[in-house]
């Protein structure tokens, strides 16, 4: 099986979908000619393969990029636009929040907006808080959007292909730390469904729901906990909305304990939503109070020791696990 970083997996998905459907085009800042000449990046080589008609470098204009997607999608094209870093979502947010998410509803179901907004995210690069800020909970708070955050290269490929074929607007958030971690990706064509969590490790004592860049630390923590006789079940959420309640609840029913782990900050983070769902619909399964393992409520700092302090790690998860098991 081929081993690809998440950027390469995204690149394969884009290439396959652009070959399959002439309505698919990509646009964004440097999606054609980039300041990064790196085969690990998601749009490398697409300009050469598909030409400037379908690989559109744009001005630095996030509102126009997102509006381009909304208008083109209404016409039946399938735009895949890129927002370079997650904090710049704010500049595109009117078009995404007030338009992509709402215009179908406002049309009474007459129009649809089959667009994908790819967003590069994640701390760990010393880039500071205006380039590193995980805002997935903002997007998940908007009915009308689907929010996808894959954790493996294989899922990124299969889910991006599904997102492009989905008739709804999809916010597809890629953790840049995963661009440089080669992982197995099937050679043959496949689709991975949206809205379906995936159990990446079976366990009986504790459920850990996590996604994106936190899957790695969660898996290694589970290895260590296993050596101490604690078997953690790792639920890779993959899609925030629509939320796969069933997989979460049946796992908690089995283990009786829950930790939600994400890189984003704590207050108003999506862990709170998952905790609330389990309290409402799975309270009787719980043998102990649930825990959140998240970034602290601070902007992501630039200095390496400060940034390491910010990013939740396997030790934080192990500590939380031992508190409740």
């Amino acid at each position: 099986m081929q081993k690809l970083g998440m950027g390469q997996a995204v690149n394969q998905a884009l290439r396959e979908e652009m070959h399959r459907d002439p309505n698919v085009f990509i646009a964004g800042e440097g999606v054609g000619v980039s300041i990064h000449v790196n085969p690990m990046f998601p749009t490398t080589g697409l300009l050469e393969e598909f030409g400037p008609g379908r690989v559109k470098d744009t001005p630095v204009s996030e509102a126009a990029i997102a509006g381009l997607a909304v208008g083109a999608a209404e016409a039946g094209l399938r735009p895949v636009v890129e927002i370079m870093f997650n904090p710049f979502f704010t500049l595109a947010s009117d078009m995404i929040v007030n338009h992509a998410a709402k215009l179908r509803y406002l049309s009474g179901g007459k129009s649809s907006f089959p667009l994908v907004v790819r967003i590069k995210s994640g701390a760990g690069f010393g880039a500071g808080c205006q380039h590193s800020h995980n805002l997935e909970a903002w997007a998940a708070h908007c009915p009308g959007l689907k929010v996808v955050m894959p954790s493996t290269s294989a899922d990124a490929k299969g889910m991006l292909k599904s997102a492009i074929r989905d008739d709804n607007p999809v916010i597809f958030i890629e953790h840049m730390g995963l661009y440089f971690a080669p992982m197995p990706v099937p050679e043959e064509e496949y689709l991975t469904p949206l809205g379906k969590a995936d159990i990446k490790r079976q366990g009986s004592d504790l459920t850990v729901v996590t996604w994106s860049g936190m899957l790695g630390p969660a898996m290694s923590a589970a290895q260590k906990l296993s050596q101490e006789g604690i078997e953690a079940e790792i639920v890779d959420l993959r899609t925030l909305t629509p939320l796969d309640k069933e997989t979460i609840l049946s796992s908690v029913k089995k283990t009786g304990r829950l930790i939600v782990m994400h890189e984003a900050t704590r207050t108003g983070g999506f862990a709170g939503e998952i905790a609330a769902v389990v309290m409402e619909e799975g309270f009787s399964y719980l043998k102990a109070p649930l825990r959140r393992v998240t970034g602290p409520d601070i902007p992501v700092p630039a200095s390496p020791p400060l940034e390491r302090f910010y990013i939740p790690g396997e030790e934080d998860l192990i500590k939380a696990a031992k508190e409740i098991v």
Partner: peptide
């Protein structure tokens, strides 16, 4: 007449996208 938006200035980027589709096709 697929979109009426009440966010002031909201029509402009959407119109760009709609016109792009006309040019693309």
């Amino acid at each position: 007449a697929p979109c009426t938006t009440t966010v002031v200035g909201g029509t402009l980027p959407i119109a760009v996208g709609r016109a792009f589709a006309q040019q693309y096709r």
